[in-house]
Each structure stands twice: as structure tokens, then as C-alpha cells.
Write a protein that binds this DNA or RNA. Structure first.
Lengths: 357, 357
DNA sequence: TCTTAGCACTCTCCCGTCGAGAGTGCTAAG
DNA sequence: CTTAGCACTCTCGACGGGAGAGTGCTAAGA
């Protein structure tokens, strides 16, 4: 929709007025009147003049009136224009940066803890909903496997990814395997399969099984069996959502129907992942507002999100979800900073710090 | 408060009428009129007679009127009486039992997964909020420890409790320790400390450190150091809450203020744990309604909960939280069945099944 | 003595009205 | 091109009346 709008038509004065409307609306959550723009902008124009301009802006698709004789509210197109060319970013305060870095110290935190902390920080510092999508296991590169005997034929398989994600899986073997042999198998698998993705490993194992089933000895058979069961983690990306209740105080969620729709949206993880995935391409912060997307338009919400990852590899997305009327000047740099900090923390977990001595 | 009420005063007819009021209110969520009781009960009494009785019941503290000339609503005392002596339990349908048992199969599920599934089942089958409290780590009995080298000085410590709970903790050691030695240490600690609680183990280690620091050799020092860091899990009980959004459809949550208070209540984990802990004593299902407790009375909610555990050892509590107007006949047996099934599943995880061959 | 029909009373809820207030659009003059 | 002025529109809260539901009380009946 926003492509259809001819922004070239806007004079500097039009832009100034539109900006004032947006800023005021972000603060007040109410339709903005011509009078308030006239008073607060430094243009020295009367309300009547502002009204003429606002009528134009409405015609061009940047403003809407909830009803005749009400003030005006910015559209998604207006927010996009504001973000792209009318807004100066507000830097993340040093205090918040310190706070974030303290909470995302990579030492003694695995990736899941980092992701959880990130989600919480996003929510806490923006007073909106924080969302982080974790990478699925299929494309994960294996760092280490370990089998721990826990009782009888039950074995705990611990899988560590190269980016610090950990998964546990309890498996049942056909016969009891002594601790020493489990350790041999752990070592063997870690050494031989470390550095490959779980998908590659699974394919390899299936091939091995098909080819050599006949001449396999008992030890190899056990190894393959354990690997097949333990490394068979095909779970997709997970979504970590934090702070949904902070939005309950906002005026835009004063009616139950919208609250319900919001929680239904959060319950539909697959749809959330799909929405967040739109921000996977590129490397910077991307903003989805209203009409772009079903979920955001349904609720009049926006999504400010960016991908995170280690080196060239993108692992997932993180972002803030909340009413379109949000403080983009603050929120965009915040998402950016958290994305970089999380990426850095993940990179340090296993490669930096203690490794480079 | 309920102790102060003289239930002996109630004639069988009074009880019948009270029961009818409660049952009707549970279905309708509205104040119950004398006329509707007169029509639906089989007493063959006129509305006027019912009115007299209801006036008495109100005087005795079992009913209240939202306002004059409205029907009547049961009090917490009425629900308690209903549950204790007026209600026949409705058995959990065989279909639901099967569904539960399928979802709580102990094989290849660790305790955290079982707890998560239980919480979800509680919510799904009751259409209320499901809550499960996990045991804190301090009193947990160790089953196995395992150290996995992941990179440089970073070591992943995996702790498995005797009841199937698993925790991972990434620790940083002073120097790089070879994989083989880590495995020796894992074996040593598992063999020597298995069967003790983490608190006991920690005390023992501290004593060891104080006494023998001088004559410790390097290997022992490392072992103790790893044990001290890895087994230092003092996290308290966790609360797993599921299905808060299912309540949004209920008429009692039609105003935002109550929704907010409900979510604030869920955010205050410590208070939830405290409330649930009231149900730790005894072994059966316990019901807290309104006035008994600040959280339930604040929201006009009830808690139906029971402890779960393995053998003599109580591990935690599980229950259902929702508006006092809930279907106790269905919900109490459901909580009971889920409590037993979860306990059984946890018991089987490590002792049953594959162990007894 | 218990039950019940009858009736007056009370309270909620819905609906229409009304006036204030806010904001706009238009017009005509500067 | 700007702006003051004015009529117009729409929301919102207050007010009020009428319908409906339900009660409490009373007096008559079993």
C-alpha cells in the first residue's frame, strides 16, 4: 500500500505537520486536533491552515479520522514515512547499555538463557512485548554429544550446538549399556560428527545403516543406534515471548476482545514464526506495520525486528511487538543494540573468552 | 470464616435448595432467582417458599445478593459445604484418562517435560488455568552428574535428579581439563554422591575444602572445584502456568481490571508458590476458595490442588486455578487423577520400566 | 404451622433525549 | 495563501422513564 503513495507531493511544511501529528499521537494515544498541532509546532500557523494541510494528508493516505469531527490518527504509511525519513534515532542511554550487557554476559550462560534474558530485556526496556525466535535444530551445527546413563536402559542424551544451545533427550536403549561404553560412544560421535549439522549427520547415519548393516559389529551397531535416537532432534524454531501483560495497561487494549485476539495471536507460534521470519533477510532492523501483514493489521500492532546470528550464519530473529503507536525513536535503536549484543554474546560463548588465550 | 457457620441448622430441604442454587450458578454465572430454583428442583415448592429459605441461607452466610432485588450467589462457605457433603464426584471419563496417560508416558520424557505436559493437560481438560510447582533443587536427590567439555575452559555440567529432573549449567574452570579427566570426575561424583540431596552434598564439599585444602592433590582439587560449581543449584521451586488465555472468554473476566490483576497474580511466582504450598500437607485434593486466602479472594477465584511425589517424598503441587464458579464435580477428580498419574510417571521414569527386568 | 398467591417495592438495564464540548469544513475577508 | 468566524457533526456523559426481573412482606389457605 505505501508504495502507491506519492511522497514527492509533500512540502517541507506538510512533513513538519505530519511529524507533529505522529509525535503527538504516540504520546497521547488520541486523535490529534488541528488546534494542538497549531499550538505545539513552531510554524506559527493557525488551526485553520493546519486543517487544510491535514485534509490533504488525509486525502494522500497518511491520516485517517475515526469519525467526522474527530482529530486525526496516523496510518501505517505515515509511520513508515516517519521512520524512514522524518525521525532521528534516539541513542540507547549508556545506563541501559550497561544494564543490557550485564544481563547478557556470555560467561556461564547457555544460549537458551541468553535468549530468555534477551526477550525479557526487550520487554522490560520497551514496555512492550519481547519476542525471540530460536534456531530450529535441523540446521544446527553439532558441538558435542554426551550420553549419561541414568537407570537401567534409560540414557540421557545431551546435545550441545556450536552456538551454545543445549537440548536433553531421554532415550531408551534395547539393552543396558555400561557407563564406560557410553562415554566411548560420546567421544566417538563428538569427534566424528562435530562441526556438521544435525541434518547432515542424520543423513550420514541413515546411509551407514543401509550400507553396512550386515557387517556391523555390536559396538558399532550400538553407536549408530544411540546416534540415531539421540541426534534426531527435528524440532523447529521456538518462540520466546515475554511481557504480554505489560500491554494490558495501554489504552488500546482496554477492550477484552482485542486482549483475547492478542493472546490468541501469541498462542499461534507457527504464525508468529512466519511473521518474524519476514525480517530474516538483510541484517538491520525492519519494521512491519499494519497493512503489511495479517497479524499486525489485525491488531493494529507493529513489529520491530532484526535477525541475530554468529558470523555469517543467521540463527533467528528478535523483536518488539506492540501497538503501532510506539516510540520508534527509542525502540528501533533498542532492538538494534539487543540484536548486536545477543549476537556477540552467542559468538563469545564458545569461540571467544576462554578459547583465545 | 467458614468455621463460624452452624451447618447443623440446615434441614435437608435447605441443603437441597442451596445445592440447586450452586449448580445453577455454576452453569449460568448469573445470580439465581427463587423462581428458577422452584422450577428446576423436584421439591414442588413455590417461588415464595424458596424465597423464605433463601433469605435464611443468606442470613446464615451461604448466599449473597449483589444488590436488593437480584437473585443470589453462593459464598465461599456454600462452595465448601457443597464440596464436602453435597456433591457426588463425576468420574474422569475413560476417554480422558486414556488421553492423559498417552500424554504422560514416562518413557523418553524427562520430569520437566512431564510437568509441562501435566500443566497443559490440567488447563486443556478443565478449560481453566493449570499450575504445577516443581521441587526446588536444594532438597533434590542426585542421580547422576556429568561434565561435558564444550570449548576451552567451558564445561557443561548436567545434573540429573533421582526423580528425573534435569538441569544444565555452563561453568568456567580455571584451566582447561581434558575430556578423559572430566569423565573420571563425573564417574567419581556420581558414584560417591549419588543418593544424597544437593544440600547434603554441598555441605560435605565445603567441609572437605576446609579440612583438606593443604594436602589435596591437583586431581582432587579439580574434582571438588567442579562439584562446588556444578552442583551449586540453589534455585527454588518453579511454577509452570498454562492456559491463562482460556479464561479470557469467561464472563467473570469481562473487565480489564480483573484481567490485569489476574496476570499480575501469575507474574508473582513467589506468591503463587506460597499459595500452592498450602496444599502440600496431606495427600488428597484440597480446595481453597475466596476468603481463605488473599490471592483467591482478591480475584474471586478458587484453587483446586494436590501434592504429587514419588513414594513418601512429596515433590511439589499441581492444581487448577479459576473463577470460584467452577465445575468442582469434574475438576476435583481430574486434579486427583492427574496428580496420581504424574506421580506414577515420575516413579516409573527411573525405577520402574527398564530397571525391573 | 407451613405454604402460597398477591402485591408493592427496588434495582438494573436499555433506550431515547439533551446539552456540552471538541473538532471539523467551508466561506469570505485580509 | 492565511485566517477568523461560523455552522455543522459527532462523541460523551447525564438524566429520565419504562420494562423486566426479582425480592420482601402480608394475608389467606391447607
Amino acid at each position: 500500500m505505501s508504495e502507491g503513495i506519492d511522497t514527492g507531493r509533500l512540502t517541507p511544511r506538510d512533513r513538519e505537520i505530519l511529524k507533529e501529528v505522529i509525535l503527538t499521537h504516540i504520546l497521547s494515544a488520541e486523535p490529534v486536533s488541528s488546534r494542538s498541532v497549531s499550538k505545539h509546532s513552531h510554524l506559527g500557523l493557525s488551526a485553520a491552515t493546519i486543517r487544510n494541510v491535514m485534509a490533504d494528508l488525509e486525502e494522500w493516505g497518511f491520516l485517517v479520522q475515526p469519525h467526522t469531527s474527530a482529530g486525526r490518527v496516523p496510518t501505517a504509511a505515515a509511520y513508515h514515512l516517519f521512520i524512514e525519513s522524518m525521525m532521528e534515532m534516539r541513542k540507547v542511554p549508556a545506563k541501559e547499555k550497561r544494564y543490557i550487557e550485564e544481563n547478557l554476559k556470555s560467561s556461564s550462560a547457555d544460549a537458551d538463557q541468553l535468549v530468555g534474558a534477551t526477550s525479557h530485556l526487550l520487554s522490560e526496556l520497551s514496555q512492550q512485548v519481547g519476542i525471540v525466535v530460536t534456531p530450529g535444530w535441523g540446521e544446527t551445527v553439532l558441538k558435542a554429544v554426551d550420553f549419561v546413563p541414568v537407570s537401567g536402559r534409560r540414557v540421557l542424551c545431551v546435545v550441545v550446538s556450536s552456538t551454545g544451545f543445549i537440548d536433553n533427550k531421554l532415550i531408551e536403549t534395547e539393552e543396558e549399556i555400561p557407563r564406560a561404553e557410553l562415554q566411548r560412544i560420546s567421544n566417538y560421535l563428538t569427534e566424528n560428527f562435530g562441526g556438521q549439522t544435525l541434518r547432515q549427520i542424520r543423513d550420514q547415519i541413515l546411509r551407514l545403516m543401509a550400507e553396512e548393516r550386515a557387517q556391523m559389529d555390536r559396538a558399532l551397531a550400538r553407536t549408530i543406534d544411540l546416534a540415531r535416537n539421540g541426534l534426531d532432534l527435528d524440532s523447529g524454531p521456538e518462540v520466546v515471548v515475554d511481557g504480554a501483560q505489560t500491554l494490558l495497561a495501554r489504552p488500546e487494549l482496554s477492550d477484552i476482545q482485542r486482549v483475547r485476539r492478542m493472546f490468541e495471536a501469541f498462542a499461534d507460534k507457527a504464525r508468529l514464526v512466519r511473521m518474524l521470519s519476514q525480517c530474516l533477510l538483510g541484517s538491520g532492523v525492519r519494521v512491519l506495520i499494519g497493512e503489511d501483514n495479517d497479524l499486525t493489521s489485525e491488531l493494529d500492532f507493529s513489529l520491530v525486528a532484526m535477525p541475530y546470528g554468529v558470523g555469517q550464519q543467521t540463527l533467528g530473529t528478535l523483536g518488539i511487538f506492540g501497538p503501532s503507536r510506539m516510540d520508534y525513536q527509542k525502540v528501533i535503536p533498542l532492538v538494534h543494540f539487543l540484536g548486536e549484543t545477543l549476537s556477540r554474546a552467542l559468538a563469545e560463548t564458545f569461540s571467544g573468552g576462554s578459547d583465545r588465550k
